[in-house]
Design a binder for these strands. Sequence first.
DNA 1: CGGAGTTTTGAGGCTATTCAAAGGTCGTGG
DNA 2: CCACGACCTTTGAATAGCCTCAAAACTCCG
Lengths: 252, 252
Amino acid sequence: MDEQAVGRAVAPGAPKGRHDEVFDLTESERAALATIQGRPLQLPRDYVLKRDGAEPTHLFVLVEGWVASSIAVVSGRQQTVKIHLPTDLLGAPSLCVTRTAECLTSITPVTVRPMSRADFMGVLARFPRIAAAQFLGAQRERVVLMEALALMGQTDGAVRIAGMLIDLFDRLAALGLAEHGTLPLPLTQGQIGDLVGLSPVHVSRKLGAMERAGLIRRGMRTITLLDIGRLRAMTGLPQHAFVREPEWVNFA
Amino acid sequence: MDEQAVGRAVAPGAPKGRHDEVFDLTESERAALATIQGRPLQLPRDYVLKRDGAEPTHLFVLVEGWVASSIAVVSGRQQTVKIHLPTDLLGAPSLCVTRTAECLTSITPVTVRPMSRADFMGVLARFPRIAAAQFLGAQRERVVLMEALALMGQTDGAVRIAGMLIDLFDRLAALGLAEHGTLPLPLTQGQIGDLVGLSPVHVSRKLGAMERAGLIRRGMRTITLLDIGRLRAMTGLPQHAFVREPEWVNFA
DNA sequence: CGGAGTTTTGAGGCTATTCAAAGGTCGTGG
DNA sequence: CCACGACCTTTGAATAGCCTCAAAACTCCG
């Protein structure tokens, strides 16, 4: 029933992206989102897009590459709370505070398009469907964070690594960037440690053990999940179906 | 310049609450939120308001009492991801999924008002300021979760307990329910363990050590923070100022 | 007063950490 | 093109933090 969608042309200035996740947007909605985005910016690896403590004047749309969002705690340690992938909106959590809560750092070379917070909120005010989609998108991020917190608090290192791999696999697969269980993994073991709350040394040990157990196979900056079902079962978390065009949302 | 607000009467059906956190709402906005809420429901302690896996057909506004939101992981363990306090909106994260992600359980006897998700989304569609406020409120929850995740992943048990106490204190103080560092704490040590990712036994040891160190004093179902500054410094996290009536949000 | 649930304390074991050093990989400059 | 240096990964050994099991003391409520 959706066959014609396959060949549907996408207007050049208004690409289909994360904003269409909940509702199929109209041309004018898509155009509004496109016009408030600045020119694409290319940035090298390990570039700090936004330092925590700064004033959150604008957001970014991630076009290409990976970006880590992290929070510094006591004694020089930091937790990476999210790996952002292409089409993600960067910096939204800090809209609610006067000084940025998270530090955004590129993991790979990246392309981003900046967007002023005033322009973004203006679009939300004028387009109720976009506002609803962004509200539900923020709730989705809450669910992801809640489950990450559950793994961090209640499970051991191997399970947390499994959870991270499953999360990245699902999101990359949705972007068409992971096939047959193989995904790019441009993270050092230290960066994986920041993500799952382990020391680099222990990440090395656990990855080695998981490879010997036949759960994964490691390549150069890639990793293959050999038993996705078993990795998912290790976490004990459900695989969520996210809402699309819910019938309980109506716009007069 | 806001003097007259002090004596402003509040319409009985439309109390000032969490929804006014970002913007001072108009009477019609407040009325719209009030009319979609069902009759107050009184529920006993340890009552499951919403089991994870169910269909998320409605939300609750918490009027009175404490409610835990938790997620079950492998092997019978569960992580409490948030303690909800009066005026909180319950169940919003699950709006984005087809089966509820979190389990809501009352910690104390509670009063809640149910609200259908369709009615709630209808109000968001009709009132852009409410939609913007809810969007920013969801981002605020993201920041709170990100910081909880950072503590869970990177710090030891004493720091995580300190973070939990500071969070509860700040939120209870904003409600006028904590004075001079003393707050009600109707949680068992097992429930605290679910919240900070420790066993009940270890919670007991750490609380004892913190009391001996002069950081806290324990009463019957209350706790007194004797050195809030030091407890806050232990976490290494900033004390956020959340936005109120930001000048970068305009409604035509 | 009795009983269920909660808190405290002790002992032993497991997970993960730190420190340390060796081996690999990659990019860069000679 | 090779050699070097920086960074990353792996492995070992000793230690710290937390868990489980277990039992005793306490609290609260019926």
